[in-house]
């Protein structure tokens, strides 16, 4: 299978998003911002005013906290950037997308297809996953400039909202499409066919645990 590579703006138009296929590799140009627990809590639960004009400045939300430091003169030193697991932000994302018009959600691990169908597709948004989750140095090369950091005094470096101007930042991989299909679920389904054979000859533990699933086709993310 050939891997298809595309360049995309962080404020992409509807046609560009519609053209993306599961498994495509994406490189980004433009402004993006980072947002994890602290940003959603502050913006949505505590109703703080957003420090940027969204989505006109950026429609790209990166579930990330960079390896960065703020120098004494207020400038920034940012090296590696890597995504963090997105499923933990599911409770905030629908409201966030509605409020900010985010079209590209970038992170680790993706969401499930129910989430894609429920609030990604109606917002015309797709999910991009970082590659391998550890290509921090490669992504770091795509940083043209760290434009700002918001809410750092309140949230700390790891949870603050970083605003990054990127130039051909990538690789990212397209993990959902405008039909709500999920790349990871597609792959899981292929792998599931093999699981019974792999488990052959193993034995369930004599002492059971209160568990939420024994179905190996299930996933742990909610």
């Amino acid at each position: 299978m050939d891997i298809n590579e595309v360049e995309l703006s962080t404020t992409p138009d509807a046609e560009a998003i519609a053209a993306l296929q599961l498994g495509d590799i994406v490189y980004l140009n433009g402004l993006l911002y980072t947002a994890r627990e602290g940003v959603y809590t502050r913006a949505l639960d505590e109703k703080a005013n957003l420090p940027m004009d969204l989505p006109s400045e950026s429609a790209t939300n990166f579930h990330c906290s960079p390896a960065a430091t703020i120098r004494e003169d207020g400038s920034f030193d940012m090296g590696a950037v890597t995504a963090t697991a997105s499923f933990r932000f599911a409770k905030w994302l629908p409201e966030w997308m509605e409020k900010t018009g985010a079209k590209l959600i970038i992170g680790k691990g993706g969401m499930n297809s129910a989430a894609y169908k429920e609030y990604f597709v109606p917002n015309g948004a797709v999910y991009l996953s970082t590659v391998g989750y550890g290509t921090g140095a490669l992504l770091g090369r795509g940083i043209e400039k760290v434009e700002a950091v918001h809410w750092e005094p309140e949230l700390g470096i790891a949870q603050a909202m970083w605003v990054i101007r990127c130039k051909r930042m990538g690789p990212f991989i397209v993990a959902s499409d405008l039909d709500g299909n999920c790349l990871f679920e597609r792959e899981n389904a292929k792998i599931a066919k093999n699981l019974e054979r792999v488990y052959e000859g193993t034995r369930p533990a004599v002492l059971k645990r209160f568990g939420e699933t024994d179905d190996r086709e299930d996933e742990l993310i909610g």
Binding site: M1, I3, G23, I25, C64, S65, P66, A67, G79, A80, V81, T82, A83, T84, V131, G132, Y133, G134, T135, G136, A137, L138, L139, G140, R141, P171, I173, E187
Partner: peptide, 27 residues
Amino acid sequence: SLSGYVIKAMLDNYDAAKEDRCAMCGD
């Protein structure tokens, strides 16, 4: 093919980290 692409990207990333003296992963 996708898994192979990912591993290749990781190998590139190790080189980039060494060349740029930058952490290989953001976490």
